[in-house]
Simulated scan of single mutants.
Amino acid sequence: MIGRLTGVLLSKQPPHLLLDVHGVGYEVEAPMSTFFRLPAAGETLTLHTHLVVREDAHLLFGFGSMAEKTLFRDLIKISGVGPKVALAVLSGVSVEEFWGTVRSGETGRLVKLPGIGKKTAERLVLEMRDRAGVTSAEGTVAGLPAVPFGALSEARAALASLGYKPAEVQRLSEAVYKEGMTTEAIIQEALKRALR
Rank of each mutant, 00 (worst) to 15 (best):
M1V: 15
I2P: 08
R4G: 08
L5T: 11
T6L: 12
S11W: 11
Q13F: 10
P15R: 04
L18C: 10
V21W: 07
V21D: 08
G23W: 10
E27K: 08
E29V: 15
E29P: 11
T34S: 09
T34N: 02
R37S: 15
A41T: 15
E43Y: 06
E43M: 07
L45E: 08
H48W: 15
H48L: 15
V53Y: 08
D56Y: 00
M66C: 13
K69I: 10
T70S: 09
L71E: 03
D74N: 11
I78D: 05
L87T: 12
V89G: 10
F98D: 01
G105S: 02
E106K: 14
E106D: 14
I116M: 07
K119I: 07
T120S: 07
A121F: 02
V125T: 00
M128W: 06
R131D: 05
A142P: 07
A142G: 06
L144D: 11
A146M: 08
A146T: 14
G150K: 03
A151Y: 03
L152H: 03
E154A: 11
A155Q: 00
Y164M: 00
P166W: 01
A175K: 04
V176A: 02
Y177R: 04
K178L: 14
E184M: 11
L191A: 00
L191F: 01
R196F: 10
